[in-house]
Amino acid sequence: HYVEVNGKKIQATSAEEAEKIAKKFAKIYNATVLDLGNYYKVT
């Protein structure tokens, strides 16, 4: 599981952790979290 933010991949140990990381970055960048199955993308 990982999160992609601005083209950078951030490794996460679980889907739950990946979701938390994605939501945190989405809040910082006022962005949207896309759940793409095996990873989250912040756009």
Rank of each mutant, 00 (worst) to 15 (best):
H1Q: 04
H1Y: 15
Y2L: 03
Y2T: 04
Y2E: 02
V3D: 00
V3S: 00
E4M: 12
V5L: 09
V5T: 01
N6M: 14
N6D: 08
N6T: 03
N6L: 14
G7R: 03
G7D: 04
K8C: 15
K9G: 02
K9L: 12
K9N: 07
I10D: 02
I10A: 00
I10R: 02
Q11H: 15
Q11N: 13
A12Q: 01
A12L: 06
A12Y: 07
A12W: 02
A12I: 05
A12S: 04
S14A: 02
S14R: 02
A15G: 06
A15R: 15
E16W: 09
E16Y: 10
E16S: 11
E16T: 09
E16P: 05
E16N: 07
E17L: 08
E17T: 05
E17H: 14
A18E: 00
A18T: 00
A18G: 01
A18N: 02
A18D: 00
A18F: 04
E19K: 14
E19P: 00
E19V: 08
E19R: 14
K20R: 13
K20P: 00
K20Y: 10
I21F: 04
I21C: 11
I21K: 02
I21Q: 02
K23L: 13
K23E: 10
K23D: 07
K23R: 13
K24T: 11
K24I: 14
K24H: 15
F25I: 14
F25L: 15
F25V: 08
F25H: 04
A26D: 03
A26Q: 08
A26T: 02
A26S: 05
K27C: 12
K27H: 12
K27E: 13
I28C: 14
I28W: 14
I28N: 06
Y29Q: 05
Y29K: 05
Y29L: 13
Y29S: 05
N30M: 08
N30S: 08
N30A: 08
A31V: 09
A31L: 15
T32V: 14
T32A: 10
L34Y: 06
L34A: 07
L34Q: 12
D35A: 10
D35L: 13
D35N: 14
D35V: 14
D35F: 14
G37D: 10
G37L: 06
N38G: 15
N38R: 08
Y39N: 07
Y39L: 06
Y39D: 07
Y40Q: 04
Y40L: 13
Y40K: 05
Y40D: 04
K41L: 15
K41M: 10
T43P: 03
